[in-house]
Design a protein around this nucleic acid. Structure first.
Lengths: 202, 202
DNA sequence: CCCTCTGTTGACTCGCGGGTCAAACTTTGC
DNA sequence: GCAAAGTTTGACCCGCGAGTCAACAGAGGG
């Protein structure tokens, strides 16, 4: 039997989800150290102490929150990869755009997750690494496909993926402050630019 | 009259340099919050209180340290750009390699300076932005040159530079732990990969 | 209406790290 | 050799934020 058994457990489950949603947002925005539990509690119109009823501590809360964030993000990427139509190039471009859009619009500082994992407690590092591995996996699959079909040409798969990932993760920093319509143009430009990494040369 | 006038001031100047060297290393490695002044002091075989004789506070110390780090790094890039021989492509590749090597070998976590500037106090943000602007300037110059001579083709100058910068800054994260000889191969691969961003397509 | 179980509170402890300062020590100039 | 200036120390203050906990609601259930 999956899921909560009775009304009480369901209620608790919903509460946990609310907390995780807020926590994911804050940890995604600010990183680990810069989030304090009072802030999380305040956003839930609740007191800090109450969080400890659901989670053993900051680290556990952050771990669960990252899990949530990661699962959501990964799921969307994977679904997109599964449903996207067209050539490998078209699909890769779609993925890049979507990934950048999620990063910028929803987790504007989630790059911290990937870029400075050393500041996170050990337990979290593993989750973050795993999350990144799964993201990479989605991109790698399309990349390999395009390579095998001869549609793409790359110097080295590893550094191509690294470069792509770096550029995408960093996007929030330089286009978070742009107005929305310019953001869209920036996403397109970045996607086109990154496609050059896989384009064949004469 | 430039420079310190008497022996006392020279001595003080040297002490300040020692402190800044250590501070630049630590701030470059760990970011702002994660550095505490006790650590800085300990590395200098000195007490925390003593730092306050030379600097008004953590923020001022960090500002000066970043200044040092930035000046050194920028100067080396600029000198390399000025002395490098060959086509625009050859020079760009040289710059990329050098930049990555400096990032990985000397300031292994300096990417935090660029990547998460929102965690730094306002005063520091300006310095960091300026440092990055100067780095970009060096690359932009070569890029524009190659474009004008028809050697390069890019989708958009801005996102090309962004992508390059992102990939280079992030390099320390994924190749800091490699043995030195593999690092060199990784640098080469990354440089070759990034050159694709400017390569003309048929 | 009371009893129990689930949640919530707010006042508390505690350690950490930035910042202060008078006193002690060292160097320098005469 | 001594006074003044320069430098270092270590004990101390203070605020912040994580974590604790006894006391206090409500919501059902009998």
């Amino acid at each position: 039997m999956l899921g909560p058994v009775n009304r009480v457990e369901r209620k608790r489950g919903r509460r946990v989800e609310q907390i995780l949603a807020v926590a994911a947002e804050l940890f995604g925005e600010r990183g680990y150290d810069a989030v304090n539990l009072e802030d999380v509690a305040e956003r839930l119109d609740v007191t800090k102490g109450s969080l400890y009823y659901y989670f053993a501590g900051k680290e556990q809360l952050a771990t669960a929150a990252i899990e949530t964030l990661g699962t959501d993000w990964t799921a969307r990427l994977e679904e997109l990869a599964a449903t996207a139509e067209g050539s490998a190039a078209q699909r890769l471009r779609t993925l890049i755009r979507a990934h950048v859009a999620i990063a910028v619009r929803e987790y504007p500082a989630a790059l911290r997750l990937f870029l400075v994992p050393r500041t996170w407690p050990d337990a979290l590092r593993a989750r973050i690494t795993e999350m990144r591995r799964r993201h990479d996996q989605v991109f790698r699959a399309v990349l390999v496909e395009g390579l095998e079909s001869g549609e793409f040409a790359v110097v080295a798969t590893a550094s191509t993926l690294q470069a792509m990932h770096a550029a995408m993760s960093q996007a929030p920093l330089w286009c978070a402050d742009l107005p929305v319509d310019e953001q869209d143009r920036a996403f397109d430009e970045l996607a086109d630019t990154l496609m050059k990494l896989v384009s064949p040369v004469p």
